[in-house]
C-alpha cells in the first residue's frame, strides 16, 4: 500500500463525509428551490447511467457476453425484479455465454 493510496482514500472519504455531515449538522430549513430539487432528483439516475454505459460492455472477456448480461439485466429490471435477482441472472447469462464461446 503506497502513501498515495492513503491520500486518495482521505480525499474520497473526506469529500463524501463532508457532503453528508455538513447539511445534517448545519441545515435546519427545507429546500424550496424547484430547479435545485429537480436537479438533485435527476443526478443519481444520470450518474448511474453514465457509469454503466458504455463501461458494462468492457466488464467481461468478450463484448458479446456483456451484451447478453446487459440485455438480461434490462429485461429483469423492467419487470421490477430486486437488485440481487437482476445481478445474479445477469452474471449467470454472462457465464453461460463465456462458456459457450
Amino acid at each position: 500500500m503506497t502513501p498515495n493510496f492513503f491520500l486518495y482514500l482521505l480525499t474520497a472519504a473526506g469529500v463524501t463525509y463532508l457532503i453528508r455531515m455538513l447539511p445534517l449538522v448545519l441545515v435546519k430549513k427545507k429546500i424550496q428551490n424547484r430547479f435545485l430539487l429537480s436537479f438533485l432528483y435527476y443526478i443519481p439516475y444520470a450518474v448511474l447511467s453514465v457509469m454503466t454505459i458504455p463501461a458494462i460492455f468492457y466488464a467481461t472477456e468478450h463484448t458479446l457476453t456483456a451484451v447478453a448480461g446487459f440485455a438480461v439485466a434490462l429485461l429483469l429490471a423492467y419487470r421490477q425484479k430486486s437488485l440481487v435477482t437482476v445481478a445474479a441472472f445477469s452474471c449467470a447469462a454472462v457465464l453461460i455465454c463465456e462458456l459457450l464461446l
Binding site: 454503466t52 467481461t60 445474479a88
Partner: peptide, 21 residues
C-alpha cells in the same frame, strides 16, 4: 478468471436495476 469475468457485470446490473424501474 471466467467466473470473475462474469461477476464483473454484477455491479452494473444493479445500477440497471435501480435506474430502469
Amino acid at each position: 478468471a471466467i467466473v470473475i469475468s462474469s461477476l464483473g457485470v454484477a455491479i452494473y446490473a444493479m445500477f440497471v436495476a435501480i435506474v430502469v424501474p
